[in-house]
Design a protein around this nucleic acid. Structure first.
Length: 565
RNA sequence: GCGUUCGUAGCUCAGCUGGAUAGAGCACUCGCCUUCUAAGCGAGCGGUCUCAGGUUCGAAUCCUGACGGACGUACCA
């Protein structure tokens, strides 16, 4: 439920009826427990504007507030802060919506927007590597989030499936077709071998170049080979997506090749709009002084990444009717996106109100702060990284308990993959992050395992109870009050995460929630002897509601839970 | 050179649309299992928020400058 909103409008009303400025009332969570549940800090600024004493004005506003549903008490403190405590009754009576409702009390947004989300975008000539990890994970989590909040999300996997290297790759594919089916099993070495052939054998190199021409001309045989290559390559990706638990499907693919035919048209259109300038043999669009020009056609006649991106942008507004277009891509590409957004606006490829966003992220570093590489200095294949995560998780789990082989594999996968994703999603996406196996697979601190473990413990309590949850929440102490409130804050948290496209807002919340639950669990026995029946039921309900929120929040992040760890 | 961005505890990070005494985790020290999963909880230790100015009743947060790092800087993606 939207708690902040409600408090804000209650305060705004009071301000309004006193003829005080009330346009941007912002209520925030209290910075300290002693200050209550929420606080309003705006009185000092308003008093300043009205040239009166802030404390006196705050008192006036506070006493003018009419609400007998949510607010238990208020006080004016310090320089003129208004501190707010919520009613136990209000909290407890709303917990029930967290029990059986799949939306957990989160409203669907009233105006659905159509959002195009561009993420992952692997290169078909190569195996997926760590470089694709962040875009894939962050993009997928944001997709889940937007969707859950009610937007219509169109995922677009802008795969790299076109370019001169494919002439070489399909030449090599044809050459090795009869020898072995497994020649494509490792794209990396396939690419290396093809490259080697290209360098060493003139006839092969010529064949490769011919293939490029044939592909451009849509020659049937060449296209068939290309199709075959892309299909196999996509299977590699899908294998990774499946292991990662990522929602990208075949129908989300709209690769570079899709826009091929449009590129000459795009050039013509830019030309008609008088946006093209010939410079050193290349066709460019010049922008303002702060941005370098965008080259849309090279002097040798070839198109570039920027050209395809412009075409895609146009397709996404004109054909897909997106009102918001998000690119989940490396922060280093910030300037590139700035450029193409500006060209698209100049050329009216997008509507004026279309929201264009580059959702950037930092790099993955190793412990010494250098870009993350494998031991031999090469890129780390994503699939190897995931397998290692699962292996490490399994080793770690094995030490603690007895499991059947099937059980172990299942939990190891949930924990291992969860660890990798959570480590990424729990940090501010814009900053570089340090890849550290020990840290991400730790049971302590803000990690997936700590959260998943809490879920498993709650599950264990509920299993042990093995009865029907039927009763009311009775808030008996400060901890239960805080826990109930934390649970009800879920919607506010999702909205904030969505607004800023920041998944870590969700993970911080989860960590706070679980920490709080653990305190509650230590101090407020549930199934132990001597606990009154209604108190027991109340605590069970709080626990169940916590489990539901954990499960849902993790699901949005793309992370699974296990009933037992 | 120009541009973008970052600089918070020994380490890894939150907090940044200005608010009250700057928060976590790890590490370190010490407590808590005949009691619901101790993979947990509690306590302690640890800070001139890089520096210098400015705006403000109030600055880690906004502005300017300096220093330090990362990244980008027209025919790669």
């Amino acid at each position: 439920m939207k708690i902040k909103n409600r408090l804000e409008s209650i305060i705004a009303q009071s301000l309004h009826s006193l003829s005080l400025p009330n346009d941007k009332v912002i209520v925030s969570e209290a910075s300290k427990i002693e200050f209550g549940d929420y606080q309003f800090n705006g009185m000092m600024a308003i008093a300043k504007k009205m040239k009166t004493n802030p404390r006196e004005l705050a008192l006036l506003v506070m006493n003018n507030i009419k609400d007998d549903e949510m607010i238990a008490k208020m006080e004016v403190a310090g320089a003129g802060f208004i501190n707010i405590w919520l009613k136990d009754n209000f909290l407890s009576s709303n917990i029930n919506i967290l029990l059986n409702d799949d939306r957990l009390g989160v409203a669907k947004s009233l105006k659905t927007q159509r959002v195009v989300l561009d993420y992952s975008s692997p290169n078909m000539g190569k195996q997926m590597h760590v470089g694709h990890l962040r875009s894939t994970i962050i993009g997928d989590a944001l997709g889940n989030l937007f969707e859950f909040l009610g937007d219509e999300v169109i995922r677009q996997n802008h795969i790299g499936d076109w370019g001169t290297q494919f002439g070489m790759l399909i030449a090599y594919l044809e050459e090795n077709k009869t020898s072995s089916n497994s020649s494509l099993s490792d794209l990396e070495s396939f690419y290396q071998n093809a490259k080697k052939r290209f360098a060493e054998d003139e006839a092969f190199a010529n064949k490769s170049r011919e293939n490029v021409v044939k592909l451009q001309a849509k020659e049937e045989h060449a296209l068939k080979l290309w199709d075959e290559f892309i299909d196999t390559s996509l299977h590699h990706c899908e294998y990774v997506y499946d292991k990662l638990g990522v929602n990208l499907k075949r129908e989300d693919i709209r690769g570079e090749s899709f826009y091929n035919d449009d590129l000459p048209v795009l050039l013509e259109d830019l030309d008609k709009l008088n946006l093209l300038t010939q410079s050193q043999g290349a066709s460019c669009v010049f922008l303002n002084e702060n941005l370098p020009p965008v080259i849309v056609k090279k002097s040798d006649g070839a198109y570039l990444y920027a050209t395809t991106d412009l075409s895609a942008l146009r397709y996404r507004t004109k054909q897909l009717n997106a009102s918001r277009i998000c690119y989940v891509a490396d922060s280093r590409q910030a300037e590139h996106f700035k450029q193409i957004f500006e060209v698209a606006q100049k050329a009216s490829f997008v509507e004026e109100q279309t929201r264009l966003e580059h959702i950037g992220f930092g790099m993955v570093m190793d412990k010494s702060g250098k870009p993350f590489k494998s031991r031999d200095g090469g890129t780390v294949k994503l699939i190897d990284l995931l397998d290692e995560a699962i292996l490490r998780a399994g080793e770690s789990i094995k030490k603690r308990d007895e499991y059947s082989e099937v059980e172990l594999q299942n939990i190891a996968s949930i924990v291992g993959i969860g660890a990798v994703k959570y480590a990424d999603l729990s940090l501010h996406r814009e900053s570089n992050y340090m890849f550290d196996w020990n840290k991400m697979l730790s049971f302590e601190g803000n990690t997936a395992l700590y959260i998943q473990y809490a879920y498993a413990r709650i599950n264990s309590i509920l299993e042990r109870f093995d009865g029907k949850l039927d009763g009311n929440v009775l808030i008996g102490d400060e901890l239960e009050h805080r826990l109930a409130l934390m649970l009800l804050r879920f919607e506010d948290v999702l909205l904030k995460a969505s607004l800023e496209a920041m998944p870590h807002v969700i993970s911080s919340y989860l960590y706070d929630l679980v920490t709080l639950f653990m305190k509650f669990y230590e101090n407020n026995p549930i199934l132990k002897d001597g606990i009154q029946k209604d108190v027991k039921m109340s605590r069970l309900i709080l626990s169940f509601a916590t489990a539901n929120i954990i499960k849902k929040a993790l699901k949005i992040l793309g992370i699974k839970v296990a009933n037992k760890i």
